[in-house]
Structure formats: C-alpha cells, structure tokens
C-alpha cells in the first residue's frame, strides 16, 4: 500500500493568491522598515534619559510644581464636567433627529452628517480649530470635548432609539399623545438608562482627552505635562502621569459601578 500523506490544508486555497499575498506583505514590510529614518546616535543618548524617566516613576515629585499640577487637574476636571453636560444636552435632540423612525429624511441626513464629521476627526484636531477661534484656554477645550461628545452620544443613542419596539410608541400616539408627549412617555423611559450609561462612559473619555488637548493650547493638565517634558522635569512628569492613571482607573471603576447598578 502506498504511503498516505497528510498536510494541513492552507488557509488560502489558490496557490497564486497565497504566494502573491505573502510576497506583497514581505515587500511592504521591507519598504516600510527600510523607510524608517532612525538617528541611532540620538536613540542611544535617549536611553539614558529613558532610564532617568523610569527611575523618576518611583520618585514622583508632586510638590515643586504642586500649584501648576493642581491647577491643571482642576481645569481638566472642570472641562470634563461642563463639556459632558453640554454634549449630553445637545446630543439628545441630535439623536432624535438621527433616528429614522422618528424624524423626516432631511433632518435625518443633516443629523447623521453632523455625527459623521464629529466622529471622524480626533479631538486634538478639532481643538486646533477651536483654539484658533476662541483663543487659548479651557473654553476652547470645553467646546472641543462638547463637540466630540455630541457625535459620540448621539450616535449610540440614535441606534438605541431605532432599535426600539415600535408598539408602545403607537399605543401612546393612539391615546392622542402629542410629539413631545410621545418622546417623554414612549422614548425617554426606554433610552434613559442607556443615556446615563453612555454619559458615564463619555465622561471617562472626556477626562482622558482633556489630558492631551492642552498640548495645542486648549487647557487642562496636558499643557502642564507638555511643559514638564519640555523642561526635562522627569519627576514632575512622572507625578502627572501617575495621577492621570489613578484618576482614569478611579473613574473607570465608578462608571462601571454606576452602569452595573443601572442594569
């Protein structure tokens, strides 16, 4: 009897496609790595700085720039609260407008377009524009985060409204309820728990983002951090980073707790 062989069947059956793809991946990697322009001397110098920073993580300095750090964090927190609230309030009408089962087509398209633009750009890019319009400072940050929050919250909320069971809505319309009454009695009870959950989630994101938009002048702890790095103040930078991690973890825990209670 002849020897029976077995090989694992390849993932891509067509050998030409298989080899072609493998070759394409190899060529890409070769070109990509080849086009890296690394200044190895600078990297070698940097390793020392890296070690210094790593050491600083164990000796964070909260006090010598304590006033700046406190100011930065208060600004970040204030921006987070205000922007999430504004975003939430404005997101509700946008979400209703972007729900196909509640809104006429033109309104739907406008709201969906707004959501798409707000979601496509990183917060920091939007911050550049708002800083140019409103000047440096936390107000530009609030505008940025509120703008991003509207798109984020409205999209999730609109999906929820569209996924809603249409029967209770019909029942309320049938009792003679007006459009606002329909929203209040038919839509709000269904989406309210979800709305709170999404807002908590966004509060979390807004805090993280508030820590970076300061880099382009939109206020918050990011500006303080950027300055600390520019001055090579490792201990202060380490202190700020550790505080950011702590606050992010805390807020994640709290928002997880609240969202868990709502379920």
């Amino acid at each position: 009897m002849s020897v029976r062989v077995w090989h694992r069947p390849p993932m891509i059956a067509d050998p030409r496609l298989r080899w072609g793809l493998s070759l394409a991946v190899l060529v890409y990697l070769f070109l990509a790595v080849g086009s890296l322009e690394v200044n190895w001397q600078r990297v070698a110098e940097g390793l020392e700085r890296g070690a210094a920073f790593a050491a600083a993580l164990f000796t964070p300095d909260f006090s010598s720039r304590g006033a700046d750090i406190l100011e930065g964090f208060l600004e970040s927190l204030a921006m987070t609260f205000v922007s999430t609230t504004i975003g939430l309030l404005l997101a509700v009408p946008v979400a209703v407008g972007a729900a196909r089962n509640l809104s006429p087509l033109p309104v739907y398209l406008i709201c969906r377009g707004f959501i798409a633009i707000s979601r496509s750009f990183q917060e920091i890019i939007i911050a550049i524009l708002f800083v140019a319009m409103l000047g440096f400072g936390p107000l530009a940050g609030v505008a940025t985060l509120a703008f991003a929050s509207i798109g984020f919250i409205a999209k999730l909320l609109a999906e929820d409204i569209e996924a809603m069971d249409p029967k209770p809505l019909e029942a309320i319309r049938a009792t003679g309820g007006s459009a606002t009454q329909t929203l209040h009695w038919g839509v709000m009870p269904v989406v309210l728990p979800r709305l709170v959950g999404v807002s908590m989630y966004r509060l979390d994101i807004n805090f993280r983002e508030s820590a970076i938009i300061g880099i382009v002048g939109a206020g918050g702890i990011g500006a303080t951090l950027n300055t600390a790095f520019d001055r090579y103040e490792y201990d202060t930078a380490a202190a700020i980073l550790l505080l950011i991690i702590a606050i992010v973890l805390l807020s994640e825990y709290v928002s997880g707790f609240i969202r868990g209670r709502l379920r």
Partner: peptide, 11 residues
C-alpha cells in the same frame, strides 16, 4: 502622551 514621552527619550 506616550509619544510626548518617547520623543523626549528617542528624539
């Protein structure tokens, strides 16, 4: 933020 840190370290 990682990038800020790494630009400082690696250039």
């Amino acid at each position: 933020i990682w990038a800020l840190l790494l630009v400082m370290i690696l250039g």
